[in-house]
Structure formats: structure tokens, C-alpha cells
């Protein structure tokens, strides 16, 4: 399994996710600077969390125009698996690789805490090791995580089973009370129609070993490992 992690100026979860993958899958990913245009083939490309370009203009907006993004877009169309976590998700929506947009949290606060997620589709490359409707405890840490899309897009996401993770309580109740940021339909993570591009606000890399206070993210990386090998 060949994995690349794109490093933007301001990325700060690049090392965390590299550590998690090395720990769980045994292979150390490569880092690629966002200015690269030519690079070798990878099975998986990760856009990590952080504050690319200081979140200036809109989160992910400037990063989505980084030189590397053209090539990543091309490769995603050819089936390369792409993951964007937190700021990575924002970059994926800004670059139109995923539908919708991420707006400022409804309560205007930076939210940094562990929340519950429901696995709504376990038939994807990141969720196949989870049970359908499994409830997992994962941290979020963001200011702009309110997922928004048009009614038509929402219908498409639902009809095509593209909603992978939804915010819920510890019983798996998906209600507005358990929605930390005001996301439409409690959406925390989606895939594209083809199923090879995933974006999510929560951080599985921050709950993939006991020492960090949780292991619910391990199956996320095992799913990827199994899907690729």
C-alpha cells in the first residue's frame, strides 16, 4: 500500500495521520509538498487536517488552488483513493471534488471534543471494517464544520448512499441535539458518487491508539488497508 500525505503550509495533522498509518498498516507514508506537480503513483492520497494558508479567505479555498491539486483531481477521476480530513475535507469541497461546502459552526465557536458518529454506510473503502450503524467515539476540532449543500445535492447524497458518518448520541440517535456544528442532516463525512473520494470533519487519526484515549479509529485505517491490498 503506497500512501502520500500532502503537506500544505499550515497543515498540522500530517504527522499524526502518518503515525497512525505506520502503526496500524505497517507502512510509512510519503509526505508531498503542495507545490509538486509530478509525483509517483499512490494507492491513497491524504489531505490532512490543519489550517492551510491560515484559513485565509475561506477554509481550504487557497489550498484548493495549490499546484498539486490539478494532478490530484486527475488521479481521483482515474480511481485513486483520496481522503480529506477536517481541513482536507474543506479543500475537497472547495476544489469541487466533493459536493457542498463547510461553513462556520452555528455557535460560532471552535469545537474541540469527542463526539459520537454513526456509520451510515459500511460499504466503502474507509468503513468496511465497521458494522452498519456502528456508533463510534471520535474527536472533532474545527471552527468551520457546518456541512451545507443544496436540497438536490442532499437528495442525491441520500439516494446514492454517499453519507458515511452522521453525528449522533451514544445510543446512535441522530437528532439535532447531537449535532455539534449545525451540519445539514448531521452530516460528518461523505464520499463522492464513485466512492473513491472521502471527506470528513472528525479525526480518526486522533483515536487510533489507547494512549490517545480511544481506538475507534483503528477500523478506519484497517478498512483502507484491506481495500487496497
Amino acid at each position: 500500500m503506497k500512501v502520500a500525505i500532502v503537506v500544505f503550509p499550515g497543515s498540522n495533522c500530517d504527522r499524526d495521520i502518518s503515525w497512525a498509518i505506520k502503526n496500524i498498516c505497517g507502512k510509512k507514508p510519503d509526505y508531498i509538498w503542495h507545490k509538486e506537480k509530478n509525483f509517483t503513483n499512490y494507492d491513497l492520497i491524504i489531505l490532512p487536517g490543519g489550517f492551510s494558508y491560515g484559513d485565509y479567505l475561506r477554509c481550504g479555498a487557497i489550498g484548493s488552488h495549490s499546484p498539486i491539486m490539478k494532478e490530484i483531481k486527475k488521479r481521483s477521476q482515474n480511481g485513486t483513493k483520496i481522503i480529506g480530513i477536517c481541513n482536507g475535507f474543506q479543500i475537497l469541497t472547495e476544489s469541487k471534488m466533493l459536493p457542498g461546502s463547510l461553513l462556520q459552526n452555528e455557535n460560532l465557536k471552535f469545537i474541540c471534543k469527542k463526539i459520537y458518529l454513526k456509520v451510515k454506510n459500511n460499504n466503502t473503502f474507509v468503513s468496511k471494517k465497521y458494522k452498519l450503524n456502528e456508533i463510534i467515539n471520535v474527536p472533532i476540532a474545527h471552527m468551520e464544520g457546518r456541512y451545507y449543500c443544496s436540497k438536490e445535492t442532499l437528495k442525491e447524497l441520500e439516494n446514492n448512499n454517499q453519507i458515511i458518518f452522521q453525528y449522533c448520541n451514544d445510543n446512535g440517535n441522530v437528532k439535532n441535539n447531537y449535532n455539534p456544528n449545525g451540519s445539514i442532516m448531521n452530516i460528518a463525512g461523505i464520499v463522492n458518487l464513485k466512492g473513491n473520494v472521502l471527506g470528513m470533519m472528525p479525526h480518526p487519526e486522533r483515536c487510533s491508539e489507547e494512549l490517545l484515549g480511544g481506538e475507534n479509529g483503528i477500523k478506519f485505517f484497517r478498512s483502507i488497508f484491506e481495500s487496497i491490498n
Partner: peptide, 9 residues
């Protein structure tokens, strides 16, 4: 259209 605004929002 390309950079300064996000036309969806």
C-alpha cells in the same frame, strides 16, 4: 467565480 467566492454559499 474561481477564487474569491464560493458560488454555492
Amino acid at each position: 467565480e474561481d477564487v474569491l467566492t464560493n458560488s454555492l454559499t
